Computed example of a mutant assay.
Amino acid sequence: MTRKLFPLGAAVLGVAAVLFLLRRPLMMTAPTCMAGRWHGCYDTFNGVVLMTLVTVPLAVLVAYALAWRRQKRGVPAAWRLSLAEVGMVHGTVPFVWLVLMPGAAAGQVPGRVSLVPLRDLVTMGPLGITGNLLVFAALGFFAPMRFAAPASVPRVLALGAACSVLVETAQYVLRLDRVSSVDDVLVNAAGAALAALASRRWWRTSARASSHPPAVHTAA
Rank of each mutant, 00 (worst) to 15 (best):
W97F: 14
F136M: 02
M145C: 14
P94L: 07
F147R: 11
P117H: 12
A137S: 12
D120F: 05
L133I: 02
V135C: 03
L115S: 08
F142S: 04
A148Y: 10
V99L: 13
F142N: 00
M145D: 04
V113G: 10
S114M: 11
L139M: 15
S152W: 06
A143F: 10
L98S: 01
D120Y: 08
M145S: 02
V96H: 10
S114H: 11
G107P: 02
V109Q: 03
P110S: 13
R119G: 00
R119E: 13
I129H: 01
P102T: 05
A149F: 15
R119P: 03
P110G: 08
L133W: 12
A138E: 11
P110I: 13
A137W: 04
L133S: 02
F95P: 06
F95M: 11
G111A: 09
G131D: 09
G128M: 01
G140M: 09
L98C: 01
T123E: 08
A104K: 11
L115P: 02
Q108V: 06
Q108F: 00
A138I: 05
L127P: 07
G131H: 03
P94T: 02
M124D: 04
G128E: 05
T123S: 13
L127A: 15
N132T: 07
L133K: 13
F147L: 15
V96F: 03
P94E: 01
L98Y: 06
A151V: 12
G128L: 03
V109R: 12
M124E: 09
G125E: 07
T123F: 14
L121D: 04
M124S: 03
M145H: 07
W97A: 07
F147V: 01
A137D: 04
A104H: 12
G125L: 00
T123I: 07
R112C: 06
R146I: 10
G140Y: 09
G131K: 05
F142V: 02
V135S: 10
G140L: 00
V116Q: 12
L118T: 08
G111T: 12
T123N: 14
W97H: 03
N132Q: 07
L100N: 11
A149V: 10
F141L: 14
L98E: 08
V109F: 06
A106L: 02
G140S: 11
P94M: 07
R112P: 10
P150E: 05
W97V: 14
G103Y: 07
R146Y: 07
L139A: 14
F95L: 04
G125P: 12
L118Q: 04
P117I: 07
L134I: 05
R119S: 15
R119V: 14
A151L: 03
R146C: 00
L127S: 09
A105E: 14
L121F: 15
P94N: 00
D120I: 03
S114C: 04
G111K: 01
A105V: 11
L133T: 05
A148D: 10
G107D: 11
G125C: 12
V113N: 07
L115Q: 09
V122S: 09
L134Q: 06
R119D: 13
V135N: 01
A104T: 10
F141N: 04
G103I: 01
L121M: 13
V99T: 13
T123V: 07
P144V: 00
A151C: 06
A106R: 09
R146F: 06
I129A: 08
A138R: 08
